[in-house]
């Protein structure tokens, strides 16, 4: 498979994956383009791997967690305010999802990547550790912190519903 054939076939999936990992479609767009530009000169090697997607995913994760992007993400988090869910006339599931999305978007990049890989990609913690180059214990602690923040949404929800 040539690089162009791979991009034609897999770009939509890469963009969806990157958007989930980044929490932001604009960042995802930038990251995927950067990654593909870096991947192209090495394509003769990458295509020999059993699963080029896995290699590209690792590149996307690395790019998202790079120092440059971490700084940009931190600045973005500072600017973003948590928006309270709007319960009036909205389906409870939709309201909760919107609340969760707000939190996911503003998680530190590493925490968001961990829970995205665990819940969106259905990866085991050991595999996530392989992608991130860390221990399973680190994965679990990052996931635990992220989930604690997500649970705050659940804690918030009943209060809003009682108003």
């Amino acid at each position: 498979m040539t690089f162009e054939e791979y991009v034609a076939a897999r770009l939509p999936a890469l963009l969806r994956q990157a958007t989930a990992l980044a929490g932001d479609p604009h960042v995802a767009e930038d990251v995927v383009q950067d990654v593909l530009i870096k991947a192209q000169p090495r394509w003769s090697r990458i295509r020999e791997y059993d699963i080029p997607d896995a290699y590209l995913r690792k590149m996307i994760v690395n790019e998202l967690l790079s120092a440059r992007r971490r700084v940009a993400a931190a600045l973005r988090r500072e600017r973003v305010q948590y928006a309270a869910p709007q319960p009036d006339g909205a389906d409870e599931v939709v309201v909760r999802r919107e609340a969760l999305l707000q939190v996911i978007r503003t998680l530190p990049a590493r925490q968001r990547v961990v829970i995205a890989l665990r819940y969106f990609e259905d990866m085991a913690d050991a595999d996530i550790a392989g992608v991130l180059g860390c221990t399973e214990g680190t994965v679990r602690s990052q996931a635990s912190r992220a989930l604690a923040k997500l649970r705050e949404v659940a804690a918030l929800q009943p209060v809003l519903e009682e108003e």
């Binding site: 958007t19 995802a28 996911i104 969106f120």
Partner: peptide
């Protein structure tokens, strides 16, 4: 399941390929 739904909704925002 709720977290998966949230990520799926997020992925739906992906830019046009």
């Amino acid at each position: 399941e709720a977290i998966r739904d949230a990520f799926a909704a997020l992925a739906d925002e992906a830019p046009d390929a």
